[in-house]
């Protein structure tokens, strides 16, 4: 009899693990997917309606200046082309600026997902995991929480933008130093 209860215990807890996972899955599917599908559709439509030519012209302009090269250009690239095609906007730049642009653009494919999930739908959980934690506190009405999920998404976006600008400038400098040391003209 003892052995049987042992087996029952194992079986119960074995399936319990997956029931717990299933519950989380249903929560994600009903809580995230409906809005995501509609949002993705809207943003894909907006990017196609604006059209490639106009975006290319804006990108060419943004690539000219150090400040916009690592802020506005990655933003345009990530918003309109999404991960991973965003990096193709490197073609508008000189060789010596390409590594820094890549660094800036790739560092923006997650900070952008809080507000614009279409930019990187395959890697949403970098953001969604933490967002889910904040949502839990929010629905529980936890007094330790002084901001909302939306506040955090906005902050993630703008801090991301500031960070990639600095990253771009630093990487551009490091690229120049490495190129000089190896005697390569980029």
């Amino acid at each position: 009899m003892d052995q049987l209860t042992g087996i029952t215990w194992v079986a119960e807890h074995f399936i319990g693990m997956f029931n717990e996972g299933g519950k989380t899955f249903v929560g994600f599917v009903t809580g995230i997917i409906p809005t995501l599908v509609v949002l993705l559709t809207a943003f894909y439509a907006v990017t196609s309606l604006i059209g490639e030519d106009r975006v290319h012209n804006a990108a060419r302009w943004a690539g000219k200046y150090a400040l916009t090269r690592y802020s506005l250009l990655p933003l345009l690239a990530v918003f309109f082309l999404t991960n991973p095609m965003a990096y193709t906007f490197g073609v508008f730049l000189e060789e010596k600026h390409k590594p820094a642009f890549y660094d800036a653009a790739v560092s923006f494919v997650h900070p952008s997902t809080g507000l614009f999930p279409h930019t990187n739908p395959g890697e949403l959980f970098v953001w969604l995991g933490v967002a889910a934690g904040i949502t839990t506190l929010q629905t529980a009405g936890n007094p330790a929480l002084t901001f909302t999920v939306t506040d955090l998404a906005v902050a993630y976006f703008f801090v991301g933008l500031l960070v990639i600008t600095l990253k771009g400038i630093v990487t551009e400098r490091i690229t120049a130093i490495l190129a000089k040391r190896q005697g390569v003209e980029l």
Binding site: Y87, G90, T171, T175, L186
Partner: peptide, 19 residues
């Protein structure tokens, strides 16, 4: 990523450690 931006091989060679 650099190849997607049509970077030259020398750029990639220096760009990888730089990043």
């Amino acid at each position: 990523g650099l190849a997607l931006g049509e970077a030259k091989p020398e750029t990639i060679q220096i760009g990888v450690p730089a990043v």
